[in-house]
Write a protein that binds this DNA or RNA. Structure first.
Lengths: 127, 127
DNA sequence: CGTAATCGACTACGAATGTAAACATGAAGC
DNA sequence: GCTTCATGTTTACATTCGTAGTCGATTACG
């Protein structure tokens, strides 16, 4: 099999495009632009460039639809998030998720709401 | 006051240099190179470049020591980690740390050890 | 049919990054 | 004192990223 998973990094600008496709897909280039260009102050040209780079990186796939293309994500958002999270945990906390958590706690980056949710999740996991 | 905190991003290669300085400082350029160059396959020249970029970015400061410089970090590792973590949480989980935690849980990226430590931390925080 | 609108492909270009060599200058040894 | 070594500064160059314009083909409208 040649299920080439995306080795290529997705940049920040590219992620904005992915978000649009993760929200709804397939989309035409124009629809993607409508979704992301205003917020970022991009022109259609910029979105088109990002889309082709994502296709090259195999993060997005295209399906011909008459004259144009329909774009869909090839990598799931969850997988992307997993990769980025792992990357951070490895890079900063020696691979220990608890290290990250401890850090967030110490930096008081955790709201009460966060704590409650985490507590609930923990209980859930312990079942 | 003009405690210019580093606005500039620290790149991945640069972080390797920072790690050396966070471990021990001040260090000479050579000592930094001894600490990081072998693992990354870098030459002394590369380390020197990274050091000066870090000085420009105000992430590292120098103190003259005779003919040469002694380098020390200007940003604490904790602050760097905080920035990067927040960045990730914002970018991927809409600013919710619990979202990150839930994600790690779901991806089974949490070991039992992680869970125990987190539980202990939670208890601590709840005191 | 011919002209205009559309759309992907190609090209552009400056800033940041990774990696490093060349250079200048001062110190240290012979 | 002159040569050599050490060390910071300057310059270099390929790649990626952010941002966008232009071109060529195809479709749609009049």
């Amino acid at each position: 099999m040649d299920e080439a998973p995306q080795n290529e990094r997705i940049s920040e600008a590219e992620q904005a495009v992915m978000e649009a496709l993760w929200t709804r897909s397939p989309l035409t280039a124009n629809e993607v632009a409508d979704a992301v260009a205003p917020a970022r102050g991009w022109t259609l040209a910029t979105v088109k460039t990002l889309l082709s780079r994502l296709v090259t990186k195999q993060a997005v796939e295209t399906a011909p639809d008459g004259k144009r293309f329909l774009y869909s994500p090839r990598v799931a958002r969850v997988d992307f998030a997993a990769g980025e999270s792992k990357r951070l945990v490895d890079r900063l906390f020696g691979g220990s998720a608890a290290g990250l958590f401890a850090h967030l706690a110490e930096a008081e980056a955790l709201t009460d709401k966060d704590l409650n949710q985490i507590e609930a999740l923990l209980k859930e996991l312990r079942k």
